[in-house]
Computed example of a mutant assay.
Amino acid sequence: MLENLTATTVGKLARTFLLSMVPVIELRGGLPYGIALGLDYPLALAAAILGNMVPVPLIILYIRHIFHWLRKQSPWWHEKIEVLERKAHLKGRMVRKYRTLGLCVLVAIPLPGTGAWTGALVAAVMDMRLKSAVPTIFLGVCIASAIMTAVTFGVIHIL
């Protein structure tokens, strides 16, 4: 049954969408994955961008509350959250200096430690407003998708 679902276009779209929601993998893994599954490029692109963007407003709105709650649960969580917040503040230097342009560049560079999840965390830690952070992160995701498209089709062409 599961194999039948994943063999359909809807199943492939769902897998691409869900993979693109995963931190670290995000669009930079979801887009090539969707194309490798055999999805038409526009469908793979749409699923990867949408999947990458779904967590963004939720992270911006709720991550500080989640961190606060987790800190109360155990010292182990407190330590892990401190590390995450320190990294967000370090990445936030460029964002503090260049504001939305810095956030866009942070999200657009398809390397580990960048992307929509990191951008949303930085925006939350810096108390950026949702109405300016989400469009900026979306633009960064679109730029990252153009870079990943070039890389993906360049690799396919070479092979």
Rank of each mutant, 00 (worst) to 15 (best):
M1K: 01
M1S: 05
L2P: 06
N4C: 02
L5P: 00
T6A: 00
A7P: 06
V10Q: 12
K12D: 04
L13I: 06
T16N: 04
F17N: 08
L18D: 02
M21R: 00
V22Q: 11
V24I: 14
I25W: 08
E26S: 06
P32R: 06
I35F: 06
A36E: 14
A36F: 09
L39S: 10
L45W: 09
L45Q: 01
A47R: 13
I49H: 03
L50E: 04
N52D: 12
P55F: 02
I59R: 05
Y62L: 15
I63N: 00
I63V: 15
R64W: 01
H65Q: 07
F67Q: 12
R71Y: 01
P75I: 02
W77S: 08
K80T: 08
K80C: 06
E82Y: 10
E85P: 03
R86I: 09
R86P: 00
K87Q: 14
H89E: 13
L90A: 15
K91W: 13
G92E: 04
R93Y: 02
R96I: 03
K97N: 08
K97C: 05
T100H: 08
L101G: 15
L103N: 07
L103Y: 09
V105I: 11
L111A: 07
L111S: 13
P112F: 08
G113N: 11
G115A: 04
G115N: 14
A116G: 07
W117D: 06
G119E: 08
A120P: 07
L121H: 02
V122I: 02
M126I: 03
M126H: 13
D127Q: 12
D127Y: 10
D127I: 01
M128Q: 08
R129I: 01
A133W: 04
P135I: 05
G140K: 03
G140D: 09
V141E: 03
V141I: 09
V141L: 06
C142R: 07
A144K: 07
A144L: 11
A144Y: 14
S145A: 15
S145F: 04
S145P: 05
I147M: 03
I147T: 10
T149F: 09
A150T: 12
V151T: 03
T152V: 02
F153Y: 15
V155H: 03
V155I: 07
H157S: 00
L159V: 00
